[in-house]
Deep mutational scan, measured.
Amino acid sequence: PDEFRDPLMDTLMTDPVRLPSGTIMDRSIILRHLLNSPTDPFNRQTLTESMLEPVPELKEQIQAWMREKQN
């Protein structure tokens, strides 16, 4: 489902985090971005790792969907 895909890389998220802007991304992708630029890739506001907020409900939904697909 589209809501499980990272908006920057269009890959399935495994550890979704919410940026201060409200955008949800995969943690590994935003951390890689932050190594090059300490900004939100969508609005260029300053962004640090400590500002990332886990989204455990979405992570659980993704994991359940993945388990379902394996069966």
Rank of each mutant, 00 (worst) to 15 (best):
M51E: 14
D2F: 07
M13P: 03
W65A: 06
I29C: 09
M13V: 07
D6K: 01
S37L: 05
D2P: 14
T11K: 07
L12C: 09
M9S: 14
D2L: 10
S28K: 15
R67E: 14
P7M: 03
V55F: 04
S50V: 08
T23Q: 15
D40G: 00
A64I: 06
M51N: 07
R67G: 12
S28P: 12
N71R: 12
L31K: 10
E57L: 10
E57R: 11
E3S: 11
P56I: 01
M9Y: 12
P20E: 00
Q63M: 10
F42R: 03
S28D: 14
R27A: 01
T39V: 12
D10R: 11
P1H: 09
R5Y: 09
L35Y: 09
D6Q: 00
Q61P: 10
V55A: 06
L35G: 14
A64T: 10
T23A: 13
R5K: 09
L31F: 04
M13C: 02
T48M: 10
L12A: 05
P16E: 03
F42T: 05
R5N: 07
I29G: 04
E57D: 12
K59T: 06
L47R: 00
Q70L: 14
E49A: 14
T39D: 08
M51V: 10
L58Y: 02
D40I: 04
P7Q: 04
T46N: 15
H33L: 06
K69M: 11
D40E: 07
R44A: 13
R5A: 05
R5C: 03
D10E: 10
P56W: 04
E49T: 14
T48E: 13
P20T: 00
D15K: 01
E3D: 11
E3H: 08
L19S: 03
N36G: 07
W65R: 09
T46Y: 11
F42Q: 07
L34F: 10
E53M: 06
E53L: 07
P38E: 05
L19V: 03
H33S: 08
F42C: 07
V17I: 03
I24V: 15
R32C: 15
L8Y: 06
R44I: 00
Q70V: 07
I62E: 08
T23D: 10
L31S: 13
A64F: 04
T11H: 04
S50Y: 11
M13L: 03
E49P: 10
F4Q: 05
H33E: 08
V17N: 14
S21Q: 06
N36A: 09
M9I: 05
L12R: 04
N36T: 14
P16A: 00
L47V: 07
L58D: 08
R32W: 05
I24R: 04
S28Q: 14
S37Y: 06
P38S: 10
Q45F: 06
R67S: 10
T39L: 09
P54S: 07
L52N: 01
D15Y: 01
P54E: 13
P7L: 03
N43A: 07
V55C: 10
W65Q: 09
P56K: 11
T11I: 14
T23K: 15
E49D: 15
I62D: 03
Q45T: 15
L8E: 05
M9A: 13
D40N: 04
D40F: 04
S28H: 10
Q61A: 13
H33F: 05
L12M: 10
Q63N: 10
P56G: 04
T39E: 12
N36V: 11
M66K: 13
R5M: 12
I29K: 00
P7A: 11
P1Q: 01
L34P: 06
L31Y: 07
E53R: 10
V55W: 11
P1D: 08
Q61E: 11
Q70F: 06
R67N: 13
T14D: 07
K69Q: 14
D6S: 00
L52A: 01
Q61Y: 05
R27E: 09
D10V: 02
